[in-house]
Simulated assay, not measured.
Amino acid sequence: MNDASVTQRITDIRRARGESLAILAHHYQRDAVVAHADILGDSLELSRKVAGLSARDIVFCGVFFMAETAAMLAGPGQRVHIPAPDAACVMSEMAPAALVERVLTRLAAAGRDVLPLTYVNSSAAVKAVVGARGGSVCTSANAGKMLEWALDQGRGVLFLPDKMLGQNTCNALGVPVEKRCILDVRGGGERLDLAAAASAEVLFWPGQCVIHARFKARDIAAVRAAHPGVKVVVHPECAPETVQAADAAGSTSFIIKYVAEAPAGAEIVIGTEINLVSRLARRYQGEKTIRPLCVSGCSNMAKGTEENLLALLETLDTAAPVTVPEDVRGPATAAVAKMLEVSAR
């Protein structure tokens, strides 16, 4: 089946199923997939939309932790599917739930009371560990608000799994560097520096996004030398020195808005996943110059294709939906619900 046939077949199925089907896609998905989305957004936008959907079948085009989150927020009788179930997240896998539990237990035994705050880029099992301890979830769009909330609870905070987003958020909030500590979780948590953890206000899990780690401050210096007057905007999963060298940093939705609000003739270099950058470059071609800081693509996001979207849609009635065990679903959903409540204030 050629590309045109695949596209037409998906269109026909969507038309036939009508309001019983909703297709959600993350901004990092390829254009051929995004073209079929009823809702396109970043993690926060998509989380907010799921709860209001009436469709029986929700197809989530993204990586697996996103589909898990959607499954937790879906209502009775609704089913969540993902076209590429093997689309993982390297950052998420840097924080296994058993190790997170072990680290929190060791900290508590040493007298360090911390409230866990997990980035949405984490498994449902990790969200459950966090929720069971009264913690919450954040996205890159609301990390500042959620970290402020966590600090206001009067306990220390463990920010996981992304040390980059955590440090950049602390920089934005003015949390002193001497009040921060990146944990060493090797050896099953046996290498924790409990003395350093005792004196820190914010503890960071040592994870990072391999896609955004590729963007360096030296890349920004080089592009400014080659193109004087250029504006640089990056995602806050980049290293702190990269964020500090940029003109602005924010979530995918922030980046989209930044480009949209730039004046005609602007030249903007973007440090984030290449699918979004290329889409923005095409959207504003002839009006603004958009280019990537460097080409960095997510191989897991790339697992979502038009072909496996069609394959799922053709077997939707018999396809196994994404499920979350009940003992995980309860506390994990509580953590996500807390984020939605706080971020809506």
Rank of each mutant, 00 (worst) to 15 (best):
D57G: 06
G52S: 06
L73I: 04
L73G: 06
I39P: 00
M66Q: 12
C61F: 04
S47A: 14
A71W: 00
E68P: 01
A35C: 09
F60G: 10
E45H: 07
V59F: 14
G75L: 03
F60K: 14
A35K: 11
R56V: 13
G52A: 13
L40W: 08
S43A: 12
A55H: 11
A71D: 04
L44D: 07
F64H: 15
A70V: 10
H36S: 02
L53H: 03
L53P: 09
L73Q: 03
L44N: 04
V63N: 09
L73T: 02
G52F: 07
A35E: 11
M72Q: 02
V50Y: 11
I58F: 12
D57F: 13
A70S: 14
L44I: 12
G62N: 05
K49A: 15
G52L: 07
R56N: 05
L53F: 14
D42I: 05
C61Y: 06
G75A: 03
F64N: 08
L46A: 14
G62R: 05
L40I: 13
K49R: 15
L46Y: 13
R48I: 11
A67Y: 07
G75Y: 05
F64M: 10
L53M: 15
A35R: 14
R56H: 12
G41T: 04
T69Y: 08
L40T: 06
D38P: 06
A74Q: 05
S43F: 06
H36Q: 06
V59C: 13
V50M: 08
A67H: 12
G75W: 01
L73V: 09
S47Q: 12
S43Y: 02
L40H: 03
I58K: 10
G62E: 02
F65R: 03
A35V: 14
G62T: 08
G62M: 07
D42A: 07
D57Q: 11
A55M: 11
V50F: 10
E68L: 05
G75D: 00
A71Y: 04
L73D: 01
M72T: 01
S47G: 06
L53G: 14
S54N: 13
A74E: 01
A37Y: 02
M72H: 03
C61S: 06
D57I: 09
L73A: 02
V50E: 11
T69I: 12
D42P: 08
R48V: 06
S43L: 00
D38W: 05
G41V: 08
L73N: 03
D38T: 10
L44W: 06
L73S: 00
D57L: 02
A51M: 13
D57S: 12
T69K: 08
G52D: 13
V50I: 14
A70E: 04
A74R: 08
M72E: 00
V50D: 12
G41E: 02
F65I: 05
F64S: 12
A35Q: 14
G62K: 03
T69V: 13
R56T: 15
A51E: 05
D38S: 05
S43W: 06
F65V: 02
D42T: 01
D42E: 10
D57Y: 04
C61H: 11
R48Y: 07
I58H: 11
H36L: 00
D42F: 02
D42Y: 03
E68G: 01
F60T: 15
F65H: 03
